[in-house]
Design a protein around this nucleic acid. Structure first.
Length: 645
RNA sequence: GCUGUUGUAGCUCAGGGGUAGAGCACUUCCUUGGUAAGGAAGAGGUCGAGGGUUCAAUUCCCUUCAACAGCUCCA
């Protein structure tokens, strides 16, 4: 029997007989590892533990603590789910059922049968029952003809469609119990480690992600090797929901919605407005420092403006419909973006190459008719304010300007403590060029410039095809919300198209006319979405400079109201925001209420404080800080509440 | 827009074919209390909207609006 060399993650290598299985390697290392092993990585591919290794390989054995282990575990759970579903609903047709970041889903066609929460519970029960049977996941290689034969007999059109796209010789089936699935694998060895099962929700999903296809039912679920781990996961999910900006926005009185005003049109409450205006002020200052000039443009624009920009052709039918005037044929659109307006500002006068770059910034409120199902708290709305700006520059200035914008975005993230963001280079979909305007060479140039600028800034980027705007590629900064959903915040876009469409020009040193390049950018993205993500990021505990209420003055009893009132006036005179709690309540109650409102500083005054000219300071979430002279507190506070810019 | 779920007081929710209930918040009174909920009384609802079935609908049915989860979309 020949021997192969197996290299372990620590770099050491051992000889094993050819055809050794992952599980046998695990056993040779330790009993514990063999017991916990779920899958194995062989030369970068994740395999079943029972698959024979035939050549010299580098391997890594995955347990529950590895992504690769969980992947196999949840993938197998999806198969277990399918087995249970088929047992309860004979004739169900299956789409795809992959593992995801947390758990798995399976797309199924149940015909016209309704499927709700009660059904989920029944399937859950069946899954647990089947898991106990300890069925092995058995891999088999099948020919394309046999695969087609099997699913034709079974009557599963979705699987047949998937097989169509596969090449003969690369097709594998997995079977556990009575259930056979077309599957690339890998899987865990058998069903017994799947101890705790929770089916989370039923949703619709288009077959192959195409709106034109039939909508299947997508069932989401998650499984764990131990009930305790499932309980912990569900608990964490509940905890995350407490950070939801929609919940906190209501509790902290930041914003609201009204059916009468219209869906997706946020109403900013006084406290939310303070927060929003602080952010706006921060950005205004940062932008002035970076050489931007503020401009203001109207909320509507004539149809012609958007015909010129190309937005009318692209989005006209799906936008808020035109506003008419008494003049026949005259039409205005609600402004869905600021760029065309800014182009017209650029055109206000002839430009010299010496004038460039010019940078026009506007907190521009725009209106977009998002599909009803897209609306989501403040993160996806129909009316929102972008911290927008357009930089008009010479082609030779593009990269430098782009880098400056990256710096600005990073300043925002740093100032607000966003550390976990993804920088995404959003490129054209090369398969579907009809979605975009403009010539190939300009796109290539813009895409290259973005990547180079990002690289120069040392950003780790992920390139995603098909995510570009219709007029140009983007660098998008993505941040996750409390429940792990990814949102785009900052965005920077290089655009060669609008300058052409608007016939923007500047006179070069050669006294010839040249075309400027436009950079669109919004470091926050929109104030609405940014505030939403910020709320979730800090769980409503805003940094002091942003906090709507920075302090609360809490007198121990009515006897100290006069002193407390004077104190409160002093704070106001120092631009310290907050409230004076003069309710007839005990101090414990006032403290509790202020804690619930997440007020950063509670200033308690009673007999001692009045006598000594002091305040007793309590910090939110921390506790009693002892007392100090009023002026000392003000100085300390002002130092701490200074905005980052 | 699509699939599924939900809509009862300002908020969180219970209830259920015979015109509604709790806790918190709110108002008034008592209480003047030192670091996370003092006590009492009171007020508050076209049960999302429209239609139907019924002697009777908040409850059952249909339509519609909105929210939630996901899909698709996102200038």
């Amino acid at each position: 029997m020949s021997v192969i060399k197996i290299t372990l993650p620590d770099g050491s290598s051992r000889d094993y007989p050819k055809g050794i299985k992952g599980i046998e390697i695990a056993q040779s290392i330790s009993e514990g590892l063999a017991r916990n092993a779920l899958s194995i990585e062989v030369n970068g591919e994740i395999w079943d533990l029972a698959r024979a290794i035939e050549v010299d390989s580098s391997i890594k054995i995955f347990t529950w603590n590895d992504k690769g282990g969980k992947y196999a575990f949840w993938h197998s759970s999806a198969h277990l789910f399918a087995e249970a579903l088929e047992a309860l609903y004979p004739g169900v047709k299956f789409g795809i059922g992959p593992p995801i970041e947390n758990g798995f889903y399976y797309d199924v066609d149940l015909g016209d049968k309704p499927f709700g929460d009660d059904d989920l519970a029944a399937v859950e029960k069946k899954m647990v029952e089947l898991a106990k049977q300890n069925s092995a996941f058995v891999r088999s290689e099948v020919s394309k003809a046999d695969a087609i034969d099997y699913f034709t007999k079974k009557g599963d059109p979705y699987k047949l469609e998937l097989i169509e796209g596969l090449t003969d010789g690369s097709i594998t089936f997995y079977q556990q119990g009575n259930f056979v699935d077309l599957c690339r694998g890998p899987h865990i060895q058998n069903t017994s480690p799947i101890k705790a099962v929770k089916l989370l929700s039923v949703a619709g999903a288009y077959w192959r992600g195409d709106e034109k296809n039939k909508m299947l039912k997508r069932i989401y679920g998650i499984t764990f090797p131990k009930q305790k781990e499932l309980d912990e996961y569900l608990f964490l999910l509940e905890e995350a929901k407490k950070r939801d900006h929609r919940k906190l926005g209501k509790e902290l009185e930041l914003f609201t919605f009204s059916e009468k005003v219209g869906m997706g049109l946020p109403l900013w409450l006084p406290k939310g407005t303070i927060l929003r205006e602080r952010l706006e002020q921060f950005m205004r200052k940062a932008q002035v420092k970076a050489g931007y000039e503020p401009v203001v443009t109207p909320h509507i624009g004539s149809k012609q403006l958007y015909v010129t920009s190309g937005h009318y052709e692209k989005y006209g039918k799906d936008s808020f419909q035109p506003i008419r005037t008494p003049d026949e044929g005259e039409e205005f659109f609600l402004k869905p973006m600021n760029c065309p307006h800014h182009c017209e500002i650029y055109k206000f006068k002839p430009r010299s190459y010496k004038d460039l770059p010019v940078r026009y910034a506007e907190f521009g409120t725009v209106y977009r008719y998002e599909q009803s199902g897209e609306l989501h708290g403040l993160t996806r709305v129909r009316g929102f304010t972008q911290d927008d700006a357009h930089i008009f520059c010479r082609p030779d200035q593009v990269k430098e300007e782009f880098i400056k914008v990256i710096d600005l975005v990073l300043l925002v993230f740093k100032s607000l403590g966003f550390e976990n963001y993804t920088a995404q280079v959003s490129l054209r979909d090369p398969e579907n060029k009809a979605k975009y305007i403009g010539e190939d060479h300009l796109w290539d140039k813009a895409e290259r410039e973005i990547q180079e600028a990002a690289d120069q800034c040392g950003l780790v980027t992920v390139a995603v095809k098909g995510e570009a705007a219709f007029y140009g590629p983007k660098l998008d900064f993505m941040v996750k919300d409390a429940l792990g959903r990814q949102w785009q915040l900052g965005t920077i876009q290089v655009d060669y198209q609008l300058p052409q469409r608007f016939e923007l020009e500047y006179v070069g040193a050669d006294n010839q006319k040249h075309r400027p390049v436009m950079i669109h950018r919004a470091p926050f993205g929109s104030l609405e979405r940014f505030v939403a993500v910020l709320i979730e990021h800090c769980a409503g505990n805003f940094p002091l400079w942003l906090s709507p209420d920075q302090i609360s003055v809490l007198p121990i009893s009515e006897k100290f109201h006069e002193y407390a009132q004077k104190l409160f006036e002093d704070f106001k005179a120092n631009d310290i925001r907050g409230f004076f709690d003069d309710r007839d309540e005990k101090i414990g109650r006032k403290i509790r209420d202020a804690e619930v409102k997440k007020v950063p500083y509670m200033l308690i005054v009673g007999e001692k404080e009045v006598a000594e000219g002091k305040v007793a300071v309590r910090k939110h979430g921390v506790g009693d800080q002892g007392s100090m002279l009023v002026n000392d507190f003000i100085n300390l506070f002002l130092k701490e509440s200074t905005p980052p810019v």
